[in-house]
């Protein structure tokens, strides 16, 4: 059983998926920022669970993890945050978390808590397909999606990954860690085509997207675009006053992913 809320995120035209690190700069501010991003038109919110050693993150999100940990963000507090947001909004919510905090919480307790608070899915960057089952057996019981990732190096693995994927497929745009890139040069079309031939679930592209033009181009290839570092950078720049900036930027990005083909030529 897959989350119906995640499916809905992709029913409002191309989806814009917005990331922020939970608890950066404070838990209360994160909650406010989530409402601002919803107001800006985000279709799905990805909340990063801060971790001491985020090996898939670039410097911007590394620093956000540090700020959040210093402000006292923990997994239990982020579950409380999700519960509060859920009382006010039906927006799909997923965690981006490294495996160890989940493992320490306990898989059974973790996914039960996800269901209780209304968290729809989890992205775990250090849990590849080969290792997923130890967590997925509990996730399935609770109807929580463990989102599968596809990377530029996944050509030989796409079929297997897509077959068992639930929620949406997270396509990593390029090699490397998270962070805004000047250009995204990976030829993603063949990979996306293969994924779609195997799985009917939506596909979203993330990593490196920082401008409306990039978001637009990625949304032409997929069902949605995921943006993290560009939003987190706004939090870093504006601190507690980032809310209005986030809303404006999300609105701009949502318009870009929703827009027609005409602006795509600028970025290819």
């Amino acid at each position: 059983m897959s989350s119906s809320r995640i499916a809905k995120a992709f029913q409002n035209g191309k989806a814009f998926i917005a990331f922020l690190t939970g608890g950066d700069p404070t838990l209360a501010k994160s909650e406010e920022f989530i409402y601002e991003m919803i107001a800006g038109g985000a279709d799905l919110i990805e909340i990063g669970v801060p971790f001491s050693d985020p090996i898939a993150e670039g410097e911007v999100i590394q620093r956000a993890n540090l700020r959040a940990l210093q402000a006292g963000a923990t997994l239990p507090k982020l579950f409380d945050l999700v519960a509060r947001v859920r009382q006010k909004s039906e927006i799909p919510l997923v965690f981006l978390t490294y495996l160890n905090p989940v493992f320490r919480y306990g898989y059974a307790a973790f996914f039960q808590k996800c269901r209780e608070v209304g968290l729809d899915g989890v992205i775990i960057p250090d849990l590849p397909a080969e290792e997923q089952e130890e967590a997925c057996v509990f996730a399935r019981q609770e109807g929580v999606d463990v989102i599968s990732l596809i990377a530029p190096t996944s050509a030989a693995r796409v079929r297997k990954i897509a077959e068992s994927a639930t929620g949406f497929l997270y396509v990593v745009s390029s090699m490397g860690v998270t962070g805004v890139r000047g250009e995204i040069s990976t030829n993603l079309a063949p990979m996306l085509q293969l994924a779609r031939s195997v799985s009917g679930i939506p596909v979203a592209i993330g990593f490196g997207i920082g401008t409306p033009a990039q978001a637009h181009a990625m949304a032409q290839l997929a069902d949605g675009a995921i943006v993290g570092s560009a939003l987190v950078r706004l939090v870093e720049q504006h601190g507690e006053a980032a809310g209005a900036h986030l809303r404006r930027f999300v609105a701009e990005m949502k318009a870009a992913v929703s827009g027609g083909d005409e602006s795509a030529a600028q970025v290819s």
């Binding site: 495996l99 250090d126 590849p128 990377a151 530029p152």
Partner: peptide, 9 residues
Amino acid sequence: QYIPETLMN
């Protein structure tokens, strides 16, 4: 093998 998908291949 708990590593990002990008490294699995």
